[in-house]
């Protein structure tokens, strides 16, 4: 199964936080309906990179992004771009589960309400149900949709956040170490879910766990000190890396 459609293309991407440069000339292609894992030691720029894709770095005053990222050949590093529309297209799941302090139902309906996706209550109920089903959470919470989202367990909260991201029908889902705050069982559930989600969404996942990258991803990019060292199919990266540094990192010699 060879997939050749490029969904996201970054070229010559440079990012500065004030004086400090975080990314150097990053060129990276992300293919449609695949899971791309980004690995590398802490502080190497993986998270900075994915936060460029949905322009979350705009929130940080001192952050300056130069270069180009296109999604379906459409430039997004552009002052005049409407980030609201962009973020509707690109969902994000964070390191620590961050459900809103609202009911489970309101957590999901928040996005669709903002973007006006539901005409009436019945539509909204349907969106909520579908999103929760896709996030494999429906059976666990269907009887307590009005309870607080913050009352769920860590793994459930993270799946709620995934459901929240799915609720506005994105094309891409960015995941920033989604399992780092979870126990192994919850992690296994999320990984299973990612496998299922890649049928309908393009997924970019930042992870510190090499085995997770092997389990869930088709392609892997290795970052080091703000530069992309090597990108290839996951199989090649882990079995036969082209770069000495990649080899050292995946065998645990540094990182």
């Amino acid at each position: 199964m060879k997939n050749n459609k490029i969904k996201i293309k970054s070229s010559n991407l440079n990012v500065h936080y004030g004086e400090k440069q975080a990314l150097f000339d990053v060129d990276l292609d992300i293919y449609d309906k695949e899971v791309t894992a980004l690995i590398g030691p802490s502080g190497c720029g993986k998270s900075t990179f994915i936060r460029c894709i949905n322009r979350m770095n705009d929130v940080i005053d001192i952050c300056k992004v130069e270069g180009s990222i296109t999604i379906d050949d459409e430039e997004i590093i552009d002052k005049n771009l409407d980030v609201v529309g962009l973020r509707e297209k690109i969902g994000m799941v964070f390191q620590k589960p961050n459900p809103f302090p609202k009911s489970i139902y309101d957590n999901i309906s928040y996005g669709p309400t903002i973007h006006g996706l539901a005409e009436n209550k019945t539509d909204m109920d349907e969106i909520v149900e579908n999103s929760l089903k896709k996030a494999a959470l429906w059976n666990e919470v269907k009887d307590r949709l009005n309870e607080a989202g913050t009352g769920l367990s860590g793994g459930q909260q993270q799946r709620l956040c995934i459901a929240r991201a799915i609720s506005v029908n994105p094309q891409v889902i960015l995941m920033d170490e989604p399992c780092s705050a979870l126990d192994p069982i919850a992690t296994a559930k999320i990984e299973e879910l990612i496998d299922e989600l890649k049928k309908s969404y393009t997924i970019v996942i930042v992870t510190h766990s090499m085995s997770q990258a092997v389990r869930v991803s088709q392609r892997t990019g290795f970052f080091h000190l703000g530069k992309i060292i090597e990108v290839d199919t996951t199989e090649k990266i882990f079995k036969n890396p082209g770069n000495k540094m990649t080899q050292d990192y995946i065998t645990g010699r540094f990182g």
């Binding site: 929130v59 509707e88 928040y110």
Partner: peptide, 27 residues
């Protein structure tokens, strides 16, 4: 109010004022 809540709201495409009205003020 933790920044992660704001991030969650921005990431789903909410504007600043929507985030303040729906997430920050209630919290």
């Amino acid at each position: 109010v933790p920044q992660s809540l704001r991030d969650g709201s921005y990431a789903i495409g909410a504007t600043k004022s929507e985030t303040i009205k729906n997430v920050v003020i209630p919290a």
